[in-house]
């Protein structure tokens, strides 16, 4: 406890100099993490924020506000004052809330401070699965309709998007979808043989693949990834994936749209610097994420593009509750 106090005090020594010079931040900033403690969003945010605090000269108190696929946290930030003292630390999910009928708000009510990194989706199979590669999997599904078990994480999650891509490119696959809480529990189930195939994010699967506990089938990137150079890319397997890639889940920090410009600028600068730090970049590459570190218009363009690709993909797969058109989400250019 003593250490905590001493630490808090010494961390605040930085605060003193900053707060005297400028108005923002004059008190702690709350960082609302959409996902639970120990998840990848949580880890990434808790890793990047300490350095941003130093630059900012303030404290960011991070809290996990979970539930409703992140919508609870998002709504909490949306209903807080637009003064720059409440940050939303989130992932890609909110961009699908509207079409999936999970909420009325998404990132269009927010300004992106920084889109930190993008993940790479990968298709992995259990080590005892009766196929060793992507083509083998498709053939096996065809021969044994309704027998192969895919892990999923509910509508709008990464597995549902990747599966929608596979269905769009290769035609409808007759498989069973077994729902899990997240890719962590699903990959555990994959190793125990409860499911056969799981579309997951590379970082979550990489250690299992290295140990031979699961077989990589396909990476969803235009080019082979450094950590798994021998795993074929989706585009090499089927040209059709070209129109969707690169695609992947991402992590970003947001504030409400009407936040004062001074706060937005300071936060943007702080997180930009924090995301350039070597330890953070190393963490990202270890976990198989592609660092983006984009903000402003560039980040907004990234969000729009992501939303239009994914929302229309889900719409075409018949998984949406409302058409993206209803929310003015443009159809992606062919």
């Amino acid at each position: 406890m003593k250490h905590l106090i001493i630490g808090t005090v010494s961390a605040l020594a930085f605060t003193a100099t900053g707060a005297l010079a400028q108005d923002y931040p004059s008190k702690e900033i709350a960082g609302i993490i959409q996902w639970g403690a120990g998840g990848s969003t949580d880890t990434v945010m808790r890793a990047v924020t300490p350095h941003a605090e130093d630059v900012l000269g303030g404290t960011v108190v991070m809290q996990n506000v979970t539930g409703g696929v992140g919508a609870i946290g998002l709504n909490q930030v949306a209903s807080a004052a637009a003064d720059g003292y409440t940050l939303l630390m989130g992932a890609e999910n909110p961009l699908l809330y509207k079409v999936m009928g999970l909420g009325q708000k998404d990132y269009s009510d927010f300004v992106p401070i920084n889109i930190l990194a993008r993940g790479t989706p990968i298709l992995v199979a259990g080590k005892d699965a009766p196929f060793d590669d992507y083509a083998g999997m498709l053939a096996y599904i065809k021969e044994n309709p309704g027998e192969v078990r895919f892990g999923s994480t509910g509508p709008g999650g990464l597995p549902s998007v990747v599966t929608a891509m596979i269905n769009a490119v290769e035609g409808e696959q007759d498989v069973i979808f077994v729902p899990y809480d997240g890719d962590g529990p699903a990959l555990t189930a994959l190793q125990g043989g409860a499911i056969d195939v799981m579309p997951a994010v590379l970082g979550a699967a990489i250690e299992g693949i290295k140990a031979g506990a699961m077989k990589p089938l396909l990476v969803f990137e235009p080019e082979a990834v450094a950590t798994l150079p021998d795993t074929p890319t989706a585009i090499s397997a089927n040209e059709g994936y070209n129109q969707y890639l690169p695609w992947g889940p991402f992590f970003g920090i947001f504030v409400r749209t009407d936040t004062p410009a001074e706060a937005v600028e300071k936060l943007t600068a702080a997180y930009k610097e924090a995301a350039e730090q070597a330890p953070f970049l190393e963490l990202m590459s270890n976990r198989g994420f592609t660092p983006l570190n984009i903000s402003g218009d560039e980040a907004q363009a990234f969000l729009d593009d992501w939303q239009s690709t994914t929302a229309w993909l889900m719409q075409d797969a018949g998984l949406t509750k409302a058409s993206p058109e209803d929310f003015g989400i443009a159809k992606p250019a062919e």
Partner: peptide, 22 residues
Amino acid sequence: DAVTAIMIGALFIHGLNPGPML
């Protein structure tokens, strides 16, 4: 459990790769 889930995150942050190979 929930606590070891966070510790796994901590190990990642500190440059270790928790997994079957650790």
